[in-house]
Design a binder for these strands. Structure first.
Length: 968
RNA sequence: GCCCAGAUGGUGGAAUUGGUAGACACGAGGGACUUAAAAUCCCUUGGCCUAACAGCCGUACGGGUUCGAGUCCCGUUCCGGGCACCA
């Protein structure tokens, strides 16, 4: 009897064994080199895993196992991102407490994950909602509160003379600076530029000083425009809002001014940008982050309001165009608006401001009509002395630059549209630029009109001599020249602006980390570090409210007793030293920002991570996750890690050295076609003959696009009496690629695949589907092929009586060639994550070895080691059958040896279409005819040519010759 | 509008990075075994022209570089992703 491949038994056996023997447990080991593989941990949602989820886990598991077999000490942990909106939304929908549903969902996830045979070290599991974990989330927040950012460049701790764009420093240093010299000589990240003297600082009361410090803290309370989502009852970060609606749920989001905790992510803009050059991420993700950070180099220039001594500042990247300024524009929200509005224009301006205010962000984005109003005032161009009108328009944003611009309609399309609409002058400044129909925005050409002939000589100008002349320069030269002139003459300064905004860090929700702080006489005060974690209190009603009242307001035991250092009943607030605790909670990204550090030392109650563990594991070598986190988690994590790096907690500045973005697995929906007003269904090929309606049908009752008629009748009561119009005796379904979702009946549960084919087939098939980084539809049509391969692979090891056939015989040259070809291919592929191309190599090798009747242990053992990362269960079973007592996880990765591939100049003959083709390596500089002659008379070729007729020779100069032969 | 990444059979996708395009798998067709089915195995499968051998055309489109281009360069079209009144 042949030995059957019983995957169910095999997989069950090894799951138990791995569990029992703690096969995947890792510890620091100074004798081994570390390798840290990490997946983005999942939100345990209520729907459980579908086949798309494990894709990245399988890819990284293969890599982790591969590295382990290469002798590395591999950290491959897993955990759950269990705080935040998704978990809470699910709880609300099902009317249960989020803690209950979260734990249920985690158990379900774990059960599903365990079936697939991952090499996770579960002893290091983290859950963001666990107090032992969020202790350190709260701790990091307190540190950020107690630090500010000094922008003065410092030598990078990494050495090599590199310079780092600033560094986080303790807030105490800033206070010392204020006490000594006020804001004099300060170069720090701040919400707005404040100016005060040391005396003024000392004169402030405690509350006032607290307010001032908020302007500098890395975690600060700020009154800012936020994305308020009434439906979700909370504010959202910028990356959680797309096209004016919430990413989660798609609910409308409005702009609202609210007092919120923020993280000064923008302080790290330059370092977040610089760091991108030091990490191996895909170009597209890096580009997305660069766009999101949005660095733009330019100049700030001060313009005086005509007839006054007041000045205001604008930001421009086109300093060269200052001679073409014909008007100025202020954002409607700008504080200057009131200042520049003249009494005559007041009514009109007020009306405009009302009109702007009434429009939501979304309406403003959709409707891009030109609107604006004249303020009545003029500004003085500091280069020409000309007066130009100051307008107010919502095409200028308050939040970027200074909220005011100089308009150069000739060379900016938005200014152009505005000028045309309001009939303002347009002055071209570049030679040959035709601005009669549209602006010339390109930053190239030769500058003219700068200064213009008959330049106004105006005594209002500060500078009369030493005038700036740009004519004849290129645009790039003119920009530099103007920037230099402007800064040298005190008209402004060179400035770099970033689009990156500070992250809004508070949520009006229940299911999140509580803020470890209380309000003492209205002053935010941190709970002592030794009292952390501040645990999330129980509440009766955890539902969010549309008004923004946080659910934590419902917690009775939620006040801080400063003397007893503990949480007490809030009824005691009026007593001495008892104060209200913050009611907001932290957002989803709080817990996910530093979890990779916690995996290094998950049970440490003294620190986020010990020095020892951090120095051993350093940072994540390989991070696998979806590209949808490009502007969220992947920015916040980098920010968070850089902050911890500044504190000396994390020894690496970048958390994730290499990043692989696995693609999404889409669903492949199937359709049946019902003839209108009947219960008759017509097969795909015949549907055009009828008037039909396509109906989604559960993909689990369709195989290779053929409908299981009985299962269909049983699927829904209304189809019990269904009739069918078949083609070739079958009902063929239509199909479409859509998002994998319950409503489209195209969700495929991995449990089902594991049950029917085994985890090894699932793992293999998910990788075979296509490149890991590409999105692709799940298509069960091909899974049989992978399963068949595993059967063939299995049969390679057993004789017809079911006995292990490996023996100590010498491998043949062909055996060695097949094996080493495979070693070379698979090693290179796994390094590059092109698993999809190694699998065919396995198939070819298996076929070759089967044809060669290979029995040699020296071939079969390395073969098992090679497949172990992909299909660990079958590999373990065969490894054991080969007589090993150790786990195949530690089987050494086979070394490739070139010599087995090139022992002769004749490469493996390839059989195809009834002919034989082989290849010779020949010297580079031979002529075509000589190559042919030499090749045909080569001794190596002789044995192949004997009794054969040469059909065709193909000569590739300097490289190879192909000779196609057939039997004479 | 700007930036990034792509386009190869009926399908998913290979191609040693400039060297035989279409590996491998799916699907389809044909055959073997079988009372039958399942399973398994073998053959064919880019297009055109052929009885066959041979031949010609083919990697979105148009040019170019090269002995040689799916691969490199220039232009065009189309699909995907990111940013976007960001001055």
């Amino acid at each position: 009897m042949a030995k059957e491949y019983r995957f169910r038994e095999i997989e069950k056996k090894w799951h138990e064994r791995w569990n029992q023997e703690q096969t995947y447990r890792v510890a620091e080991d100074a004798n081994k080199q570390k390798y840290y593989v990490l997946n983005m941990f999942p939100y345990p949602s209520g729907a459980g895993l579908h086949v798309g989820h494990p894709l990245g886990y399988i890819a990284s598991d293969i890599y982790a196992r591969f590295k382990r077999q290469q002798g590395f000490n591999v950290l491959n942990p897993m955990g759950y991102d269990s705080y935040g909106l998704p978990a809470e939304q699910y709880a609300i929908q099902t009317g249960q407490h989020p803690e209950k549903t979260t734990f249920q969902n985690i158990d379900r996830y774990r059960e599903q994950l365990d079936k697939i045979g991952f090499s996770f070290d579960w002893s290091r599991e983290v859950r963001t909602c666990d107090p032992g974990y969020y202790h350190w989330t709260q701790w990091a927040f307190q540190k950020m509160f107690n630090y500010y950012y000094n922008l003065t460049p410092v030598p990078s701790p990494k050495g090599e003379g590199s310079i780092q764009a600033g560094c986080a420093r303790p807030i105490s240093e800033l206070i010392a600076h204020f006490e000594k010299c006020g804001t004099e000589g300060l170069n720090v990240a701040q919400s707005e530029e404040l100016t005060f003297t040391a005396e003024e600082w000392k004169a402030m009361d405690e509350k006032k000083q607290s307010d001032v410090l908020m302007n500098y803290r890395l975690a600060f309370l700020g009154e800012t425009m936020v994305n308020w989502c009434p439906e979700l009852g909370t504010v959202l970060a910028n990356d959680e809002v797309v096209d004016g609606v919430s990413v989660r749920g798609g609910f409308p989001v409005e702009q609202k001014k609210m007092r919120q905790w923020c993280l000064r992510v923008s302080a790290y803009s330059q370092r977040l940008l610089d760091g991108l050059d030091t990490i191996q991420w895909s170009e597209s993700i890096k580009e997305t982050q660069r766009n999101w950070i949005g660095r733009s180099e330019g100049a700030e220039v001060r313009f005086r309001i005509a007839g006054t001594d007041e000045e205001f500042t604008i930001f421009t990247t086109r300093a060269d165009t200052m001679f073409g300024v014909t008007f100025m524009v202020l954002a409607p929200e700008s504080e200057l608006v009131q200042k520049v509005t003249t009494p005559e224009q007041k009514a009109e301006v007020e009306a405009y401001l009302q009109q702007v205010k009434a429009r939501t962000e979304r309406e403003r984005m959709i409707d891009k009509r030109v609107t604006g109003v004249f303020s009545g005032s003029y500004a003085v161009n500091p280069l020409t002395g000309e007066d130009v009108p100051i307008w107010i328009s919502d095409y200028v944003l308050a939040g970027y630059g200074t909220g005011a611009i100089m308009a150069v309609p000739a060379h900016d399309s938005r200014d152009y549209a505005f000028a045309k609409h309001f009939n303002l002058p347009i002055i071209p400044l570049i030679e040959g630029a035709d601005v009669s129909e549209e602006s010339y925005d390109a930053k190239e050409g030769t500058v003219i009109n700068s200064p213009r002939i008959n330049e106004i000589k105006n005594e209002k100008l500060k500078i009369k001599n030493d005038a700036l002349v740009l004519n004849g320069l290129s645009v790039k030269e003119a920009i530099e020249a103007t920037k230099k002139y402007v800064s040298e003459h005190g008209l402004g300064r060179v400035k770099v602006n970033y689009r990156l905004r500070d992250a809004i860090f508070s949520r009006q929700r229940y299911w999140g980390e509580p803020f470890p702080l209380y309000y003492k006489q209205g002053i935010p005060t941190m709970i002592p570090e030794e009292c952390l974690p501040l645990e999330l209190p129980e509440v009766e009603n955890f539902l969010p409210t549309a008004t923004g009242e946080p659910p934590l307001g419902n917690a009775q035991i939620w006040a801080w007793d400063e003397q007893q250092k503990k949480v007490v009943d809030k009824a005691l607030i009026d007593e001495k030293m008892v104060f209200p605790i913050e009611l907001f909670t932290m957002p989803g990204f709080a817990g996910s920002s530093a979890y990779y550090l916690r995996y290094m030392d998950p049970h440490n109650s003294e620190a986020l991570v010990s020095k020892k563990a951090d120095e051993y594991w350093q940072n994540v070598d390989l991070y696998v996750g979806g590209s949808e986190h490009a502007t969220g988690h992947l920015i916040y994590s980098r920010f968070w890690n850089k902050f911890l790096f500044d504190l000396g907690i994390s020894c690496k500045e970048e958390p994730f050295q290499k990043l692989i973005n696995q693609g999404m697995i889409q669903g492949r929906s199937n359709f049946v076609y019902r003839i209108k007003d009947t219960n008759t269904f017509v097969s795909l090929g015949l549907k055009d003959q009828y008037d039909t309606t396509p109906i989604h049908v559960d993909v689990n009752i369709v195989k290779n696009d053929v409908l299981d008629l009985e299962a269909f009748k049983a699927w829904r009561p209304e189809y019990e009496t269904a009739e069918f119009v078949l083609e070739d005796g079958k009902y063929v379904c239509g199909w479409a690629i859509e998002k994998m979702s319950k409503s489209m009946f195209n969700v495929v549960n991995p449990d089902l695949i594991v049950e029917n084919y085994g985890a090894d087939t699932l793992r293999l098939y998910e990788m075979f589907l296509g490149p890991v980084e590409q999105s692709k539809p799940w298509d069960t049509n091909g899974i049989d092929g992978c399963h068949r391969f595993l059967k063939k692979f299995w049969m390679l090891f057993w004789d017809k009586d079911g006995q292990m056939l490996a023996d100590d015989s010498e491998p043949t040259a062909d055996n060695l060639k097949s094996l080493h070809k495979l070693i070379k291919k698979v090693t290179a592929d796994v390094e590059e994550f092109s698993y999809n191309t190694s699998i065919p190599a396995f198939m070819v090798c298996t076929t070759e070895l089967t044809n060669q009747h290979c029995r040699s242990r020296r071939i079969l053992e390395p073969l098992v080691a090679l497949i172990a990362p992909f299909c660990p269960h079958i590999a373990e079973e065969l490894w054991e059958a080969l007589g090993h007592t150790t786990t195949v996880c530690d089987a050494q990765w086979p070394e490739f040896d070139e010599k087995y591939l090139v022992e002769s100049t004749v490469k493996m003959p390839v059989q195809f279409n009834g002919k034989v083709r082989f290849t010779l390596d020949l010297p580079v500089d031979m002529s075509k005819e000589d190559i042919e002659k030499t090749a045909l008379s080569a001794p190596e070729a002789a044995k192949y040519l004997e009794g054969m007729q040469v059909v065709k020779t193909v000569v590739v100069p300097g490289r190879i010759i192909n000779i196609v032969i057939k039997p004479a």
